[in-house]
């Protein structure tokens, strides 16, 4: 077993257990792991940004292809940093104006096309299909999202939820029934989103527990076992000291 893998197993196990101690209560071990997480994540982002932006988007195009026009976004980017110098802080507004202006301009047609027209097109589908030789057919297969029955359900859902969020008309009479239907759809969707999120988190938890089981193997030196005992010991020590400091336990 290479030393780096062995060390990695111990570090990964320790950090996993430190984070899990938060299930007991907020404590120094969790805080340590939490700050490590922020530090490592920021450091990782900086390194990746350096590689993507500075090397691949700036240095290589300028040095290898002579794309000197890239000095313009560099200049705009430097203007952003003017915020740190009060006398010229207003210069950063030019950079923000550029970003926000471009972003707004790009957003309008693309949102209309992808998020409004496309969504409406997918919602307003034929309720019946014509069959060869005359007549119509209505498919009721619930498992097929493209069936006619599901098309009707989708249409009712979209219209009722949109109506629920449309406050220019008072929700009374028939409008109340439509709004209530909208609430029903919303509740089902929130419930589904909740269930989906819980199971996704459970999947992550299973992954972490699986690692703890793997690292309990003697070939790694049983870090899961030893570090679990150490963590519990440290928590007991910390709780005892806390209780001694404030006998009322507050």
């Amino acid at each position: 077993m290479p030393f780096e893998t062995l060390l990695g197993a111990w570090v990964a196990t320790g950090l996993t257990l430190f984070i899990l101690t938060f299930l007991y209560k907020d404590n120094p071990l969790f805080k340590l792991a939490e700050h490590l997480y922020v530090g490592v994540s920021v450091g990782y982002t900086v390194v990746k940004t350096y590689d993507t932006v500075l090397v691949r988007l700036i240095y290589m195009p300028i040095a290898e292809q002579g794309e000197w026009s890239l000095l313009i976004p560099i200049g705009i980017g430097i203007l952003m940093l003017a915020r740190y110098f009060p006398k010229v802080a207003w210069l950063s507004r030019i950079a923000f104006a550029f970003i926000v202006g471009v972003g707004s301009g790009l957003a309008i047609p693309r949102i209309i096309s992808s998020f409004i027209l496309k969504q409406v097109e997918d919602t307003v589908r034929p309720l019946f299909y014509a069959v060869e030789g005359g007549g119509v057919t209505f498919t009721v297969d619930l498992m097929d999202p493209a069936s006619n029955l599901n098309a009707v359900v989708l249409l009712i859902g979209v219209v009722s939820v949109l109506f629920y969020f449309f406050f220019s008309v008072e929700h009374t009479g028939p409008g109340r029934a439509v709004a209530r239907t909208g609430i029903l759809f919303l509740m089902i969707a929130f419930g589904a989103a909740f269930g989906y999120t819980v199971m996704a988190r459970m999947s992550l938890l299973i992954g972490r527990l699986r690692d703890l089981i793997v690292f309990a193997d003697p070939q790694y030196g049983r870090p899961s076992l030893w570090l679990l005992l150490t963590t519990i010991g440290l928590l007991i020590l910390w709780t005892t000291r806390q209780t001694e400091r404030s006998p009322d336990g507050s």
Binding site: L7, V11, A12, T16, I19, L20, Y37, S41, Y44, G207
Partner: peptide
Amino acid sequence: FMMVPLQGTMFAI
């Protein structure tokens, strides 16, 4: 050995 376990556990809890 640091980012993946920290991130995974943080979201798992």
